[in-house]
Amino acid sequence: MLELRLVQGSLLKKVLEAIKELVTDANFDCSATGFSLQAMDSSHVALVALLLRSEGFEHYRCDRNLSMGMNLNNVSKMLRCAGNDDIITLKADDGSDTVTFMFESPNQDKIADFEMKLMDIDSEHLGIPEAEYHAIVKMPSAEFARICKDLSSIGDTVVISVTKEGVKFSTRGDIGNANIVCRQNTTVDKPEEATIIEMQEPVSLTFALRYMNSFTKATPLSNTVTISLSSELPVVVEYKVADMGYIRFYLAPKIED
């Protein structure tokens, strides 16, 4: 028996919108720790890891570990039927091949349930080791989204370079090239507007902008984004999901042929 009640149902709606472009089908795993997902895009160069900790739910019942295969486009269709203020409850019985999404309006005058078929998904689970990153940049998520969008009108790849001067996003294409430098800036009115750069050593890596733009679909989840870079490792682009968890996107760097 599985029963997860999330008062801030809009978080789940936003999570789905953040990952459905990158991943088509995925297993959602439920355990005592929480509700999680790990999935790769079809070409296996990007990976998304989601964790919503059990403490973040108003009610969390998971009698035994459960893996539920879902088509994310179909989940998104279901969740789009929930109002932004609705309380969302996920329910599944042991051995069932369906999951039920229950939507309650804030004043309890409307209750809907949507049952969705589960699917068998054969997915490989990668062990992601804890890594020391050469540079960690925390910046406003809207600023990062704007940079990725702007640069993708010029080129296909972005070089992200972190030095003691700041973080530089560069691209080049047929019509020309572009460089955007963001300097560390902690003298702002609100902490979420700050750009904070922690650098152990300079790092410069190249990534496909198509994927970066896809990651920025998570922007509505958090005012800030954290970008962790290390040479020879995938970049980690992390958005916090309120105080209950995170979405982490991993992207392999472009390498020399």
Partner: peptide, 14 residues
């Protein structure tokens, strides 16, 4: 700079 490695190159399968 052309190809990207797949995730399996970086992270072990468990």
């Amino acid at each position: 700079l052309k190809t990207q490695s797949r995730m399996e190159r970086f992270f072990r399968c468990s």
